[in-house]
């Protein structure tokens, strides 16, 4: 009986360690659990800490919000794989603890230095599978970081406002998901042939990426 209680107690302790105690997220996420938001913020800030050559941090760039939007347009299979990826790295340090004091904790509970060391361990691992996991996570974080308009603006990589000519195809297809009645153009709108000049990187930015007043 005592042994059973001990085993049950251990299981509860493990479950608490794995699933509980994550901070409440400030925003509501449709696809990410609270623990995943905590993990993405931790991993995002380890990869892209605040300050330095590009001021914004991973959490400033709202990497978690981006991933939530990404999951919303992904297939169930991809969603499942991403959740698995986050779970795997977040809890990897419960199996292979990070170096230093308190290393036997979830990734998101480690110190910033320990998080960087853990990620570097995955990146430089001699096991291809571990490097693959790192590359996948790094891709997710980088995609999120580079969706942040200030980051793109600083690097002169923000998409420009481009005037889109009207061609024959625009008379045939409505926007995705809409009926043909949603086609906005007629033959009179067709752009006459001509050559528009090359884009100018100093020109106006796409509205989604332009700096907003205030």
């Amino acid at each position: 009986m005592l042994a059973l209680l001990l085993v049950a107690g251990c299981l509860v302790a493990v479950a608490l360690r794995v699933f509980a105690g994550h901070p409440r997220a400030a925003t509501h996420y449709r696809h990410l659990a609270r623990r995943e938001v905590a993990f993405l913020n931790a991993a995002g800030d380890a990869t892209f800490p605040r300050g330095g050559a590009i001021p914004a941090s991973g959490s400033d760039a709202d990497v978690a919000g981006y991933v939530d939007r990404w999951l919303a347009v992904s297939t169930p299979r991809i969603r499942a794989l991403m959740h698995l990826l986050f779970f795997l790295v977040e809890h990897s340090t419960l199996v292979a603890p990070a170096r230093g004091w308190g290393g036997w904790r979830r990734f998101s509970s480690l110190s910033p230095e320990q998080r960087i060391a853990v990620l570097d361990g995955w990146r430089q691992s001699r096991h291809f599978a571990r490097r693959l996991v790192f590359t996948s996570l790094r891709a997710v974080l980088t995609m999120g970081y580079f969706s942040h308009p200030p980051v793109l603006r600083q690097l002169r990589l923000a998409p420009l406002a481009i005037e889109t000519p009207v061609c024959e195809a625009d008379l045939l297809y409505p926007p995705v998901g809409r009926p043909p009645e949603a086609i906005r153009f007629g033959a009179a709108d067709l752009t006459p042939p001509g050559t528009a000049p090359p884009v100018d990187l100093d020109g106006p930015l796409h509205p989604d990426y332009a700096e907003r007043a205030g």
Binding site: A46, T47, F48, P49, G51, G52, A53, I54, I116, L119, D120, R123, L155
Partner: peptide, 9 residues
């Protein structure tokens, strides 16, 4: 990762 990565970026 970290500051070194940002310098590269």
């Amino acid at each position: 990762s970290g500051v070194a990565l940002k310098e590269r970026l």
